[in-house]
Amino acid sequence: MRAAMNTKRNLVTAALVAPAAAWLFVFLVLPFVAMLVFAFGERAPEGGYQAAFTFAQFANLPTRATAFWNTLLLAPAGALLCLVVAYPTAYHLAVKANPRYRLILVSLVVVPFWTSLLVRTYAWMYILGSRGIPNLLAMVGIEDVRLLNTPGAVLLGIVYGYLPLMIMPIYVSLEKLDRRLLEASADLGAKPVSTFFGVTLPLSLPGVMTGVALVTILLLGEYLIPQLLGGGKVFFIGNALVDLFLQSRNWPFGSAIAVTLVAVVVVVLMVAMRIAWRVAGTRQVDLV
């Protein structure tokens, strides 16, 4: 009887997870295996893939060094820039803001993250483009200002696109902060500044870590922002991948780059987790 019930229970469990398991296997695990196989193959003469076992694609990686350097430089730089803007904002929302308006203010920060990144990036293309700010500057006599297609424009787009994702985890960690600790610190004669650096900042570090890690990881695979605001001059790994797959059709080389990108993401993730572990217990991120 008990055995029969256990069998039935197991069958129900299996039936519940089966569709998702199949989906994960067919559309995540298998594609990764395929990509790995392609990365060791050769480019067919007419483009695409030809079976082989060679490390030539990986040996070729230095030819795309610029894309890697741009990404590895601008992704963390963008994340840190986000942090500089995000921390005071999150602090204000969690500690200073009127509780009555807090929910609305927080919503106003989250909502842009869930609206089309393409449209939000386009907005800056529109503003920085020749008919936007440079046009206005020309009216007051400052001619030939170029803003679009510069590293600065890409960084601006990054901060704009990912600011909400940086603010949220920091806000969550600051909101959970026990107010009594701050009062205790003040009662013991600490100045507000030393309370901040001695109590608030260390306790919000997990949120900071989550935010920096999340934004950096997402930026490593970014395509739209460098494409639209960097205009082919400031390109990321994502741009190299689109070029290799959809234009020059060198699939094995593209796969090798994609595999390398995943390896970089994994390394960044592991470093972040190691640091987060040391700083405090990891904390879940509330994206919505």
Partner: peptide
């Protein structure tokens, strides 16, 4: 195992998901 696979589905950059799916389906 499920947690790890779901986390991978979220963390892996969209550009890689697109490429991997393309490569696998074409194969």
């Amino acid at each position: 195992l499920f947690d790890a696979l779901f986390a991978a589905a979220i963390v892996v950059p969209g550009v890689v998901i697109g490429i991997a799916t393309l490569v696998a389906l074409v194969a």
